[in-house]
Design a protein around this nucleic acid. Structure first.
Lengths: 151, 151
DNA sequence: CCACTATTGAGACGTAATCTCAATAATATA
DNA sequence: TATATTATTGAGATTACGTCTCAATAGTGG
């Protein structure tokens, strides 16, 4: 059976990296999150579970996990680098309300195909992409359309 | 005639912000750049043109200009927040080589239309988007495909 | 089990960006 | 135009995020 850990192990070997307790522990912690998280969420979680755990090790691991396609980065427009687990999950992109920060996940096959075509046209092989649509949701538009009160 | 300054003025008024000398000066400086630039490029430019100019003011202005769609942010995958002027320019997205950092600008009308459709489907009105395709260019792939030397 | 080498962790460090607050400038109103 | 009101500015302190260093430690292949 294929687990995130077995895929991780495979990737480490392929890259000549070692499977250490700390890396496994970090991966487990990361997998416990639902949805988006930031580096500090992980740091806080590992420090509360047991004494040890260092920022350096975490920051060294994150790009490895991204490269292994176990997690992905997203912007979500509030300045902090956010991540989410993507292993065994359907790929999706984000639609974000610039007013209330609501995030909607969506997938669009045609766009995915077109993106690959574009890359190929320029001689690239596409590894990944970031696509984030920013707009205003129905509720926030309604709120703003209310005429200003006179008092 | 419509200038970037007149659009800027309009936007400021609409947002209840004031048209100040410093803001105009910053905008002029920003307009003098070709292609991508970072916050520090602007800071350096305004400090060399005249004595004054503060980081705080610049960083306060940048999100205003983004919101007014006069500039846009891009990631371009090297850790620093990059900007480019988008006023009166054909919109484009980026294709980036993860190995040599080459950037190709492209535009794809179908994708633009689909993006707007997606937003509408979820009740959003689309203001802007970020789409960056990351892959490996032909040259970098070739370099890596060379068999490793034995010594 | 040994030798070799990658990894870890604590904290120093670097850098981008934000915050503070008194002085100043822009706008609305009389 | 003068005045009142309020946003803006700027210098520097401060924060926040991420990277680096290096000695101690832990994996790994033989």
């Amino acid at each position: 059976m294929q687990t995130i850990l077995s895929d991780f192990t495979k990737h480490l070997k392929a890259e000549g990296l070692r499977l250490t307790k700390e890396r496994v522990h970090l991966l487990e912690t990361i997998c416990s999150f639902k949805g988006h998280f930031i580096a500090d969420d992980i740091l806080f979680a590992i420090k509360s579970r047991r004494k040890s755990g260092s920022r350096a090790t975490l920051y060294r691991l994150l790009p490895v996990l991204v490269k292994a396609s176990l997690i992905q980065q997203s912007l979500l427009y509030d300045g902090q680098t956010k991540y989410e687990v993507t292993w065994n999950k359907a790929h999706h992109d984000h639609l974000i309300c610039s007013s209330c920060s609501m995030v909607i996940e969506f997938k669009h096959n045609t766009i995915e195909i077109l993106q690959r075509e574009i890359a190929n046209k320029y001689g690239f092989i596409l590894d990944r992409h970031v696509m984030e649509l920013v707009g205003r949701c129905k509720d926030c538009r309604r709120k703003n359309d209310v005429s200003p009160r006179l008092c």
